[in-house]
Structures are given as C-alpha cells and as structure tokens.
Design a binder for these strands. Structure first.
Lengths: 197, 197
DNA sequence: ACACGAAGCGGACCGCGGGTCCGTATAGTA
DNA sequence: TACTATACGGACCCGCGGTCCGCTTCGTGT
C-alpha cells in the first residue's frame, strides 16, 4: 500500500479547520455567509492549507457532515432495534425517518450547507444514495409496495434541509411537532396493518 | 396613479431578454451554466439593460417562471374540473399535483433555476406560498386530516425540481412513469374512501 | 547533533460572475 | 426642430472559490 502517514502539523491543521468550520457554520445565519477565507482565518491557517486538506468547499462540508452522520450510520447498519437491521419494517421505517429528521434538525446548518453547494445535485452524493437504498430495502419488505424507489425519494424529500430550516428556523415549529408531523405522514404511507391470527 | 408607461424600446428589449433567457436556460445543461452576460449578449443588449428590467438574476428567472405558470394558476383558480375549485377534494388533490409535476417536467430548466438561486430559500417565494395554501385548503376539506400544513409541504417536496431532474433527466424515468408514481404516492395520503350509502 | 529531502505552509494572485456607474443616444413632446 | 426624460451599454468594481510558488518545518538516516 502506497499510503504514507501524514505529518503531525497536517493532522493538527486539519482538525483545527474542521473545528473552526463547524463553529462558523453553526453561528452564522446562512451557510453561504461563511467563506473559505473566513474558515482559514478562524482556524489560523492559510487558504491553501484548507484546500489541500479538503479539495474544495464541498469536500470540507462533506467531511463535517460525515463526521456527524457516522454514529447514525453505524446504528442503522449494525445497531439494536428500532434502527438496526433486526427490526420489523413497520417499526423500522418510521424510526429511520425520525432519526434522519432529528439529525437534520440538530445539524441543519450543515445539512443546509450540504444541499446548497449549488455545484451539483444533492441526489448524487454518497450519503443520499445510502439513505435511499436503505429506505428502499425496508419498503420492499412490506406487502403491496410497488414504487419503493420513488416512495423512498418522496419520503426523503419530506426531510429536505431547507424545508426543515423553513419550518423550524423561520416558523419556529418545535422539534416535537416536526417529529409528530413526519411520523403521521410516514404512517399514512405504510400499508394498512394486516390483522394477525 | 404615478405609473408612467415605459418607452417602446424598453418593452422591446424586455421581450428580447425574456426570449433569449428562455432559449438559453432550455439549451444549456445546467442553469448555472448560463450567466447574465450570456443572456445580455444573446439578447443583443447591454448588461445594465437586463438588470434595469429585472432587478437581479432571481428577478429574471421569476419573470420567466411566472409567465409559464400563469395559465395553470388560472386553471386552478377559476377553471373547470378537475383543476378548478368546483372539484371534490379527492379528485382535485391528485389533479393539482399531477399538473404541478407536468409543469416541473416540461419546464425543469426553469424550475431548477428558480429553486437553485442559492440566494434565498425556495420556501419564501410567492409561488410556493400559493401552491402550499392551495393544497392545504384542499386537504382541509378531507376528513381526518390534521397536519394539512405539513402534509402539503411534504407532497410538494415530492415534486422538487432537482428530484424531477434526477429521475427524468439523469435516470431517464419516463414522464408517464413519474406521473404514475406520484399518483400512487398521493393516493396513499388520501384517507380511505368512506363508502357511500 | 546534524544535514537534507520531502511534505506542508501561506498569502499574493487569478478568473469569473453578479451587479453598478456614467457618459451617450434616442423616444416622446411642444 | 429643439429639448428633456428615459433608456442604453460596456467599462468597471467587488467578493469569492481556487491555484501558484518561494519559504518553512517535519522527520528520518547517519
């Protein structure tokens, strides 16, 4: 393997940039109000360092995002119910969407920044692909679901970062209200419970 | 009224700009691949003329968008069924969403440009507000619907321009498939038909 | 301890795109 | 035809993402 371990100052700077960016995105009103030069300055680092470490703006935001998302990803892929794979689909689907919604509420600055990179569609990112295929797989375990692909897209669309920002940030909808609304919506999608016995 | 009628060359130029912009947005791959200077050049006009007529980039896109949307707006507000106000809600809701989807498919260049202005949220535009309140009103005519506001947002989210672009433009989903998918999705939202008699 | 190559650093620099300014041209009017 | 308000246009400005290159520092072999 041609992997060479990076120098200490490099990893230190990388961490400093991540911390500074995180803080800036959280404190500024809009993601586009934080410029790359801002981040570099806040981290006490030159611009080139920042670009060398993350490639471009999208890369930086992606790195921040993935750091926060990792625990959830793990909980979904190998954790216990109701998120983990050993959960019956009728419970798992709402649990997944609720987890995603909470993530978007708690990290809406990041989510907003990510979806608003402007450069490319949010639908072509790895993490969207992951959520979509996960949801799709769960939907396919349910009876009578034919359009699982589109349904997954539509459900994910209900948690779009700018919608969350609009309802929570602008109209001051509470976290619990949002969760209740999404839960109710999700419930309508589920096919009617087939009575057992 | 202090309204003064504009000069003839002004209206001619305005029309030329609209035509040129329409053509450019339709032909170029991505909305952000068409610059204001491009539009001005294509219209055979100086940049300042363009900004004087529309204020800024968003204003131009908005003007294009509203021109295309006007007929639909009219059909919804005073037209015959299934779009017009005299339609029972169970029929009208799918019809409205289908009309919106078709509009987004046919004008996805514009819709994409509009939602991707980057400057401000798509949720604070007049036209979104209009769709949302229209849908909400229809939903409230149905029994057992409690979260009509959120439900309206969620349904509209299923027709987001970048999602449409992803499915139709990138993955070559056909127009009819899209309409079928959205119709099926909408149907799940509707409360179960109460049997008459 | 030292030397030396490579990895990393930083900030001046570039290109591009949205938006403005102001001297000039023209439509409308008397 | 003379005169003014209105509109024109392209040179210009500014801010931002991204790059370049001469200098610094890390870390390794001796």
């Amino acid at each position: 393997m041609p992997e060479r371990k990076p120098r200490k100052d490099a990893v230190r700077n990388r961490a400093a940039v991540l911390a500074a960016a995180d803080e800036l995105f959280a404190s500024r009103e809009s993601p586009q109000a934080v410029t790359m030069a801002d981040v570099a300055a806040a981290a006490g680092v030159g611009k080139a360092t920042l670009f060398r470490a993350f490639g471009d703006r999208t890369g930086l935001i992606l790195a921040l995002h993935e750091a926060r998302l990792a625990p959830i990803g793990e909980a979904v892929e190998q954790g216990p119910p109701p998120l983990g794979p050993g959960t019956p689909p009728r419970e798992r689907l709402p649990a997944l969407l609720d987890a995603l919604l909470c993530f978007k509420i708690d990290n809406r600055h990041l989510a907003l920044a990510l979806e608003g990179t402007g450069s490319d569609s949010p639908y072509r990112t790895e993490h969207y692909e992951w959520w979509h295929s996960t949801l799709k797989a769960v939907l396919e375990q349910l009876p009578d679901v034919t359009d699982s692909g589109f349904t997954a897209h539509a459900l994910l669309a209900a948690t779009r970062a700018d919608l969350v920002e609009h309802l929570v940030g602008r109209q001051h909808t509470s976290r619990e209200q949002m969760r209740a609304h999404l839960a109710a919506f999700t419930h309508k999608i589920l096919p009617p419970q087939v009575p057992r016995g």
